[in-house]
Amino acid sequence: MRFAMLFWAGFWAFLLDQASKYLVVHWMGLVRLREIDVLPPLLNFRYGENRGINFGLLDSGSEAARWVLIGFSLAVCVAVFVWTLRRSAGHRMQLSAGLLIGGALGNVIDRLLYGYVLDFLNMSCCGINNPFVFNVGDVFIFAGAAGLILFEDRIADRRKKAP
């Protein structure tokens, strides 16, 4: 299978995102407790319902906005998948694309099931109190996007051709 790395990276990113949300939010009772200090201030669990995009942007709370964000996320997943196929991407690009797609699909499932994305991770450091929460899928989306930029083949081609 030519794109096995993309598939498995996406599968595991999706599964880890959904499992972590279930474990922390439901099994550990974060939905009821609202906050659990794990390694304060570095790592805390804080319950969050994100109806918008990053940092609550575009949070209108409307059903139309929910479906627009679902559609946009799915369009990005398809675009990244097709782009990766057309590039005949190597393993690092496939891994990056899979992480991005798996994380995005995890957030899509949340929007379909709950109407919002479940967030629970909160990290602060060095006297700075971070009020924002995120989830494991967001980490995979960020890592995947960074990987797509860092491992893009044209950059590697330019380095090879440089004198």
Rank of each mutant, 00 (worst) to 15 (best):
G29E: 14
V133R: 02
S73F: 07
L113N: 02
F134M: 10
D153Q: 07
I149M: 14
F142M: 12
L57V: 04
L112W: 10
A146E: 02
H26D: 14
E63L: 08
L105K: 05
Y22C: 07
C125M: 15
G71F: 04
G144S: 13
I149N: 03
I128Q: 06
L112T: 07
F134S: 02
S124Y: 05
G52E: 03
G71L: 08
L69R: 01
V82L: 02
E49Q: 15
F45C: 12
F11R: 01
A75C: 13
A9S: 15
L118D: 10
F72T: 15
E35I: 05
G106D: 06
K160A: 15
D17G: 12
S20Q: 09
S124I: 04
G102M: 09
V38Y: 08
L105Y: 08
F7P: 10
Q18I: 02
N130C: 09
G137Q: 02
G48Q: 08
F7N: 07
G106E: 08
G106K: 01
Q18V: 03
A64S: 05
I149R: 04
M28R: 08
G29F: 13
G56F: 14
N54W: 07
A156S: 11
F142N: 13
F11S: 00
V31K: 09
R158T: 02
I141W: 07
E63M: 08
G90A: 12
L100A: 11
P131F: 06
F81M: 14
G144Q: 07
A143N: 14
F72P: 13
P41Y: 14
R154V: 06
G61C: 01
V82E: 00
